[in-house]
């Protein structure tokens, strides 16, 4: 469904993406991993038609109205309430207003429907941005660091939500720094380094190839156990 073939992108004279190619099938969760500055956001910007590459071609198999987007800069209207923010997009997408409340509940903001965005914490704003991205049940969902500012409990809730969206037929493209998240969520991942894809495949296959299996301490589970906070 999503494909990139030999994409090249330059800013001034600096090449930031070199021959980037990958394919994401329908109903797949695909993770793009890489250090800061490796080109992850540039790839999302190209796929969402915000940047034009110098070479190669790409396709996302969905129109702008069938695409959901959550970026690092949330673009929320600070003076408006969470509901008013989503009402705007419900109107644009032609989605019934009842879906707004549903979307807010799904990200754990059901009790903040009348709260102005300016009064939300960073994590709550991130969840609201996710609610906006999924409001119209998009075919393709782009998530740039979807759990970056969230506590473990909320992050797990968001993971469940992402899996649920995939089960309903959405194709999900996400970037993350969190390797546990990539292993737990993604069907396939690509490792991006200095604008080049250096590894591509399922997390298990990649780890097997590099003989890199180990037991990772699950601090998130301890946090949940000690605080008693349910991950939805």
């Amino acid at each position: 469904m999503i494909s990139m073939t030999n994409i090249v992108k330059r800013f001034d004279n600096k090449t930031v993406l070199t021959d980037v190619s990958f394919r994401v099938d329908r109903r797949e969760i695909f993770g793009l991993l890489g250090p800061s500055g490796s080109g992850k956001t540039t790839i999302i910007n190209i796929l969402t038609h915000q940047l034009i590459p110098e070479g190669g071609h790409y396709d996302i198999g969905a129109t702008s109205k069938e695409t959901g987007l959550m970026l690092e800069e949330d673009g929320l209207y600070k003076r408006l309430t969470t509901t008013e923010n989503l009402n705007l997009f419900a109107g644009i997408y032609g989605v019934d207003k009842s879906k707004v409340s549903e979307a807010l509940h799904s990200v754990g903001l059901g009790n903040d429907q009348k709260t102005p965005v300016a009064k939300l914490s960073k994590g709550m704003r991130q969840r609201l941005a996710l609610a906006r991205a999924i409001l119209h049940a998009p075919k393709v969902l782009f998530l740039d660091e979807p759990t970056g500012a969230l506590d473990p409990a909320t992050a797990r809730g968001i993971h469940k939500l992402i899996l649920n969206l995939r089960d309903k037929g959405a194709t999900i493209f996400l970037t993350t720094h969190n390797m546990e998240e990539a292993v737990g969520l993604c069907d396939n991942v690509a490792l991006l380094h200095q604008g080049k894809i250096v590894e591509y495949g399922s997390p298990n296959a990649i780890c097997e190839k590099h003989n890199s299996f180990k037991t990772i301490p699950d601090l998130g589970a301890v946090f949940m156990k000690m605080t008693g906070v349910d991950a939805q």
Binding site: Q50, T63, L71, E73, K78, F89, I92
Partner: peptide, 13 residues
């Protein structure tokens, strides 16, 4: 400045 417009354009406005 606050990128609200970017999301509107991305939504097809």
């Amino acid at each position: 400045e606050y990128k609200g417009l970017r999301f509107l354009v991305m939504a097809g406005v």
